[in-house]
Design a protein around this nucleic acid. Structure first.
Length: 424
RNA sequence: GGAAGCGUGGCCGAGUGGUUUAAGGCAGCGGUCUUGAAAACCGCCGAGUCGAAAGGCUCCGUGAGUUCGAAUCUCACCGCUUCCGCCA
């Protein structure tokens, strides 16, 4: 959520910022609504104050043993007027709130303008895509060829966009998770957390998935109106919801491995083959809660932490600075990491690292106490470190040989009993 | 799932319809005293929000209700504790 005070005090600046996302703000309508809000609120609070004063007078008169009936008569019509004024204010406030919740974050000045992913800017490239003396197979051919990847079985169990992994491949998948967690906890200073995989609507509102993106979520049908998490960002970031943190506890750096569940509404027909786009996938997620002045430095750090995973695994990648038109709803600045997939001859996203500034913190009421003792909103960041399924895809495709055998990178061998290859 | 009890500021805790502007304590901050510290004493000490300001308003788990007036009464829900049942 944007700062409502900024919206009131400098609407043109907000409109200009959002215009960079291609969003046209109806400033006249907002100004009109704001004026109505102000009038209605002042009126409602004036009547409340009057009621409070009179009720108090009644109490005092009664204590003195006086006849309070004249006072009660005086106050008779107040209740109705008060109810009406409160209702008027509530209706306007609701409209304004709904409108505010629909507004995305304002992009940081360093974010390039653009309408879609073609406007993204490559800011870094690491590693050299291997040239294969044969035509590299895709991960589906490789995985199924080894007998370790079974989409038909998953379709039988559940439906499309799920996978069953077996044997050494299932183990490699698990090894990746352990490796990532160990790297981030031991070398990058993150605290590992284990969190619920189902969350309530308040949590999803806090991080910005609700109210706008309900279609992307799996909602449970039972008595509890819970949702399956689309990313660990939701439970982990919500740990600080409604908290006032001590300054010394910042930055808070947390890492969690969780499954992620996405309905992929609106993605019908995209990436239907293989493990690229699934309803369920594993992810190791990095979350940082930081002092506002530190958030852009933290974004660079966090992105580098995610990159370290790819570098240890020897997977070529590039870092993209997302343009205004391709950024997520709540983000002020986002880097995507894209890993090289030889079978597709292209780079594909395995991580997205974002600085939300105070956008989530405001919804979350996540604050810290500044040296003056006053609560101030924190900045929140998160990034995948990394998406496990897609990283597994990259490993298979980048480390294959002509026989369909997969070399296991050095960094993962300790987690595989020293095994050097998948398949023989 | 059944039964009982309980949700009050950072923490503990008083408060059963009206000067409650939520007592008191702990912790914290400032001061007096002290070579310094401790103790003692004095003062400060929740959050949100509206307003140009003066000054209001809201918040005692959440939401509805009763009342001129609700932390206090009613209803529903949520959470916690204990016991029973079930269970990895």
């Amino acid at each position: 959520m944007l700062d409502p005070r900024l919206l009131r005090s400098n609407l043109p600046a907000v409109a200009a910022g959002l215009a960079r996302r291609g969003l046209v703000l109806d400033t006249a309508a907002i100004e009109r609504l704001e004026a109505e809000r102000k009038a209605a609120q002042i009126e409602a609070e004036r009547l409340l104050a009057e009621r409070n004063a009179r009720s108090k007078a009644i109490g005092q008169a009664k204590a003195r043993g006086e006849d309070v009936q004249p006072l009660l008569d005086e106050v008779a019509s107040l209740g109705e007027r008060l109810e009406a004024a409160k209702a008027r204010f509530a209706a306007i406030a609701e409209q304004l709130d709904a409108l505010m919740l629909q507004l995305p974050n304002i992009p940081h000045p360093s974010v390039p303008e653009g309408v879609d992913e073609t406007g993204n800017v490559e800011v870094k490239r690491w590693g050299t895509p291997k040239s294969f003396p044969f035509k590299p197979k895709d991960h589906v051919a490789l995985g199924e060829g080894l007998g370790f990847m079974d989409f038909a079985a998953a379709a039988k169990l559940t439906g499309s966009r799920f996978v069953v992994l077996k044997s050494e491949l299932a183990r490699l998948h698990r090894a990746l998770i352990q490796f990532m967690l160990d790297l981030h906890t031991r070398e990058h200073g993150y605290q590992e957390v284990y969190v619920p995989y189902m969350v309530n609507a308040d949590s999803l509102r806090g991080t910005g998935q609700l109210p706008k993106f309900e279609d992307d979520l799996f909602k449970l049908a039972g008595e509890s109106p819970y949702y399956l998490i689309p990313t660990a960002e939701v439970p982990v970031t919500n740990l600080v919801r409604d908290e006032i943190l001590d300054l010394e506890t910042l930055p808070l750096k947390m890492v969690a491995h969780t499954p992620c569940f996405r309905s992929e509404a609106g993605s019908a027909g995209r990436d239907t083959r293989g493990m690229i786009r699934q309803h369920q996938f594993e992810k190791v997620e990095l979350v940082q809660i930081v002092h506002p002045e530190r958030s852009y430095a933290a974004l660079e750090e966090l992105t580098a932490h995610a990159e370290a995973v790819l570098e240890r695994l020897g997977l070529p990648y590039r870092r993209m600075l997302l343009c205004t038109g391709d950024m997520g709803f709540g983000s002020a600045k986002t880097y995507d990491l894209e890993v090289w997939l030889p079978a597709q001859g292209t780079y594909r996203e395995v991580s997205s690292c974002s600085n939300f500034e105070a956008f989530q913190a405001r919804r979350l009421q996540a604050r810290f106490r500044n040296p003056e003792g006053k609560p101030e909103l924190v900045h929140t960041l998160n990034g995948s470190g990394l998406a496990v399924g897609r990283t597994l895809v990259a490993l298979l495709e980048n480390y294959q040989d002509e026989a369909g055998r997969i070399a296991i990178p050095e960094a993962l061998r300790p987690y595989m009993d020293g095994q050097q290859y998948l398949g023989y």
